[in-house]
């Protein structure tokens, strides 16, 4: 039991450190640009911006909990939102009832996303491809299907009522933020309070032990990639609603950023460790940093530089905690794609 408490406390330390970082960035930016950063308008604009990243990062985190990764989330997001956009423009060419439009978009988009996840699951659990390879391949195929059905151009003319998903606000609270909050609560519940959640943490920590404990590893993998595919599709729908068009190459640069957010949020890429709250804090701190730097007239390129440095520094600082966790959770696994499972320090 001593070991369990060590995981928990080390996990909590990471969350505390991250919360401190988030608050520190918020305070620093507020002090640097009080008239700009600390305003309702800025808060609202930030709240419109981060949910699509955050939902994608949650999709990535879910896959990483199993010790895998989902490189197909952007392909999935684009393909599902393109098909949803085509369905909307075909059935509601002149606009229509808002509820019907949204229901159609969600039905088509989320089903396609879930199906993409099933295909990933088949390659990973059925054929036995490493997740990074399977999703690299399927991601390219999903993007490719998106290119073929659209001919490479954007799908435009989405019904006006669909704009609600990405652009409306309820009592000044943006709809995307509400969607994200709902997703975060559901995911936290699924991961912490369901049998699936507990099984995933065990599977991610030690797949062999989970098999010996009688868990169906194949089914766990399948469910996990279905969840990440569905979440990716939801992020895709928000994205096309904000962009008012759908295209096969939207958000390509988001892929590696979502890995960055998940890892900064304390997700262990070897599996078994990761929390919704960590991802929320990580995405908030990066959003504060990015908006604040914008107000300090720092270029987008400098932001990229700062993000990279933040990841490297955060990882280096938490290295000790981390290696302690890997040392006993990673023993005898021999399946991690990276070279950092080391011996005792």
């Amino acid at each position: 039991m001593a070991k369990t408490s060590r995981i928990v406390s080390s996990d909590h330390r990471h969350l505390l450190g991250l919360a401190a970082l988030t608050v520190a960035i918020f305070v620093a930016m507020s002090l640097a640009r009080p008239g700009l950063f600390l305003t309702g308008a800025n808060m609202q604009s930030m709240a419109f911006q981060f949910p699509e990243y955050a939902i994608l990062a949650l999709a990535m985190m879910t896959a990483m909990l199993t010790g895998g990764i989902d490189l197909s989330i952007i392909g999935t997001a684009n393909l599902s939102s393109i098909l949803a956009a085509l369905a909307m423009t075909a059935l509601f060419p002149t606009g229509g009832n808002a509820v019907a439009v949204l229901a159609l978009a969600l039905l088509v988009g989320l089903s396609v996303g879930c199906l993409c996840g099933v295909i990933n699951g088949l390659f990973i659990a059925g054929i036995g491809l490493p997740p990074i390879l399977a999703t690299l391949g399927t991601g390219i195929v999903y993007t490719g299907i998106g290119v073929v059905v659209t001919g490479g151009s954007a799908v435009v003319g989405l019904p006006d009522s669909f704009a609600v998903l990405g652009n409306a606000a309820v009592w000044a609270v943006p709809v995307p933020l509400l969607v994200f909050a709902a997703v975060a609560v559901v995911m936290a519940f699924v991961l912490n309070r369901t049998i699936y959640g507990h099984s995933v943490y065990l599977f991610g920590t030690n797949p062999r032990a989970s098999r010996f404990a009688g868990l169906k590893n194949g089914r766990l993998n399948m469910t996990t990639y279905m969840i990440s595919g569905t979440l990716a599709a939801l992020a895709g729908l928000i994205l096309i609603s904000r962009a008012n068009s759908a295209k096969a190459d939207y958000a390509e640069s988001y892929l590696l950023i979502t890995v960055l957010i998940a890892v900064l949020g304390g997700t262990n890429p070897y599996g078994g460790v990761g929390r919704v709250l960590g991802v929320v804090l990580a995405v908030l701190s990066l959003q504060f940093l990015s908006s604040g730097l914008n107000m300090l007239q720092v270029s987008n390129f400098a932001k990229e530089f700062v993000w990279g440095l933040t990841l490297l520094l955060a990882m280096s600082v938490t290295r000790i905690e981390w290696r302690r966790m890997i040392d006993f959770s990673g023993v005898g696994r021999g399946r991690s794609p990276n070279a950092a499972t080391g011996d005792k320090p």
Partner: peptide, 16 residues
């Protein structure tokens, strides 16, 4: 540190 994470970080940092 894990190589994927390191090189993701340096990808952003070098480009930035």
């Amino acid at each position: 540190l894990p190589t994927l994470i390191v090189t993701l970080g340096t990808l952003s940092a070098f480009r930035g």
